[in-house]
Nucleic acid binder design. Structure first.
Lengths: 207, 207
DNA sequence: GCGACACGCTGCACACGCTGAAAGATTGCG
DNA sequence: CGCAATCTTTCAGCGTGTGCAGCGTGTCGC
């Protein structure tokens, strides 16, 4: 499909400016706080005009939360690759777990942990992050419903499963970002899912 | 503390303008779509200046999502009123259920169902709604942790329980808003919580 | 090669959200 | 009544986000 030469010079330059903008956004946010960062600053730091910034990102938040463009249908594809014998919950868990492993491995270059730190420091930013994850949950719900031959608009299970897994994912990421030393991100996620799957006894039933 | 005569003329007028602004916001949003509504319009419809709008609400979204001022600590207080013998999950469920019953009863005057419809129609608005509910989850997690003598920053259970219940709450509200006829809102919530509490078998395990 | 086209970058203008400060109006209290 | 508090209004300004027209550079067919 794709020529062996890969993407042309043009697309590479486009990706470069996008990456430069995303990098500048993260750096400035960490240095001076999210609220104090302006689009003009980011654009200047990346050596482009402010207008160009909005050609790549529709908002300041998007530059921080979606540094790489989102591939639609990624979750659905990965879910389909899971063994059909697996229960829906386990299949979805495996896919999300793989995504987390990727994020954890990216640590060196991507700086997702720093990103999480910035996100956690600003309520409005946190809201946007949840918006993104909510969009992901919608996709997850649809993929899960398709897998089980259900309708996401009528059946409760796929939607609820997606929402609960999304919640577990969010909690896990926050815990990971707040943890002092290096922590095994996928293991943290497993712990949360396990707790939910066993019926979530709740604090009062423990110890 | 408060004089028996109740709030003075002054505070009543303040509450009136706030209510008028909130009402105008909902009406205009329903009539012409959220994106098309401007603060200037809302203020004009409520017969005040645009600046006054921001003396009551810190954003356009707040006027729609928090028509009445939020009382901090409400959840914690109601949680404390629950029987101590109740497991944490059941206690929290009862409190949230009561809140939903209130919303459902408000239907005639408050128009929460119309509100949910407007919220669901705009992604940015949905994000803000999630922001509000996320703040609520934080409060919920802290209250649950206090009840069980835990630390929300270190222990997983209270935070996860709050996140999962929040997810169930969100799914329930969406289902309620999308449902064609009048539906028993608290019952819908019970159904979702029950499904999660029993271990969320997932679609593949059913039928 | 080379010309035509596509596309990203840019500057400009503008609407809108939101904030701060200062001045006027209204309420509550002594 | 007079004073203090506070709410409203006006005005001026910053930052976000969008539409549009022009320009330069990569891309593709000839």
């Amino acid at each position: 499909m794709v020529p062996v030469t890969g993407p042309g010079l043009r697309e590479r330059k486009k990706a470069d400016t996008r990456a430069a903008l995303a990098r500048a956004t993260l750096r400035l946010a960490r240095e001076q706080g999210w609220a104090e960062v302006t689009v003009e600053q980011i654009a200047a730091a990346a050596d482009v005009s402010s207008r160009t910034f909005f050609n790549h990102f529709s908002s300041k938040e998007e530059a921080l939360l979606q540094p790489a463009g989102a591939e639609p249908g990624r979750f659905a594809r990965q879910l389909a690759e899971q063994p059909a014998a697996l229960p829906a919950r386990e299949a979805a868990r495996a896919v999300l777990r793989a995504g987390l492993a990727e994020i954890a491995a990216d640590e060196d270059g991507g700086g997702w942990r720093v990103r999480m730190e910035v996100i956690g420091s600003d309520p409005a930013l946190l809201a946007r992050a949840v918006e993104v994850s909510t969009a992901g949950e919608r996709e997850m719900a649809e993929a899960l419903a398709r897998r089980a031959g259900q309708d996401p608009d009528r059946d409760l299970e796929p939607v609820l499963l997606a929402a609960v897994l999304g919640a577990a994912l969010r909690v896990t990421l926050v815990r990971w970002a707040c943890a002092p030393g290096p922590v095994d991100l996928p293991a943290l996620f497993d712990e949360a899912v396990e707790l939910v799957a066993t019926g979530l006894p709740g604090p009062a039933a423990l110890s």
